[in-house]
């Protein structure tokens, strides 16, 4: 599964009503993702990807694409060959 799909899935799991309504450019605020929901999504992604997301990443994510981008950087070179994205 691509990283982007994993992020989309995590967002949809936290905000079921957002399913199919957003793109990489969608601001998190537009999806009703406040700071508490954002850290919950990151928590699920940490578990799913078996990585630790540092606190400063949290400060830099404003839209869906930011999450994907940050995770790409965090997983680059690590043992996540099953990821394609």
């Amino acid at each position: 599964m691509k990283l982007q799909e994993i992020v989309f899935e995590a967002i949809t799991q936290e905000i079921p009503s957002s399913s199919g309504t957003f793109s990489l450019q969608t601001p998190l605020e537009e999806l009703g993702i406040d700071s508490l929901k954002a850290i919950t999504i990151l928590y699920e992604l940490e578990d799913r990807l078996n990585i630790e997301i540092p606190n400063d990443v949290f400060d830099s994510i404003k839209n869906v694409g930011d999450i994907v981008h940050q995770l790409q950087q965090l997983t680059a070179g690590s043992d996540t060959a099953w990821l394609e994205g």
């Binding site: 508490l36 850290i39 919950t40 928590y43 940490e46 578990d47 630790e52």
Partner: peptide, 11 residues
């Protein structure tokens, strides 16, 4: 063995 607690544990 999970390393992080659920973010909603405190609230």
């Amino acid at each position: 063995g999970r390393f992080r607690a659920h973010p909603l544990t405190i609230p």
